[in-house]
Amino acid sequence: MSARLDLRFAGAGGQGIVMAGRVLAEAALRAGRAATHSQAYGPASRGGASRSDVVIADEEVVFPLVRRPRVLVILTAEAHRTYGDDLAPGGTLIVDTEASDGDDGLVLPIVETAARIVGTELASGVVALGALSAAVDDTDLETLEATIADRVPASLRAANLEAFAAGRSMVR
């Protein structure tokens, strides 16, 4: 049984968390690992609390769903209320400044940074990915960067990579 890493991005529709999850899973794939990605559908994806879950394992993800994420990224207060308690004991919590409820984890201006650098909250997921890559040993920086570069439109590539870097730098 291979070790698995369960991650969750929790936020609102329009913050790019689904993309962040997919990029993360794809990056794992590029790194020769197995991954699954799942997300909340329906009304939750159109406002309210949404989530984007990733499981990464070395060989095979047996059960593809995330129950107790070891890494939890929270971008909205609403998501905080919905998913805040899911974090596995000893897990890493990354919370946007605006969503923070006096948490113990990393409280970072993710959404604000995305809006500042890329001009849209949609890049919040990319900023979060940057922060996450710095906070968690398990992720492969190069494949993550390359995957972001492939995933975003060419015109926004530079800005997204800048946002990713900004996220990383927040944690360092």
Binding site: A25, H37, S38, Q39, Y41, V61
Partner: peptide, 10 residues
């Protein structure tokens, strides 16, 4: 089911 339908896997 819905989970399999929506889950991305390698």
């Amino acid at each position: 089911d819905e989970v399999l339908g929506h889950t991305r896997e390698t």
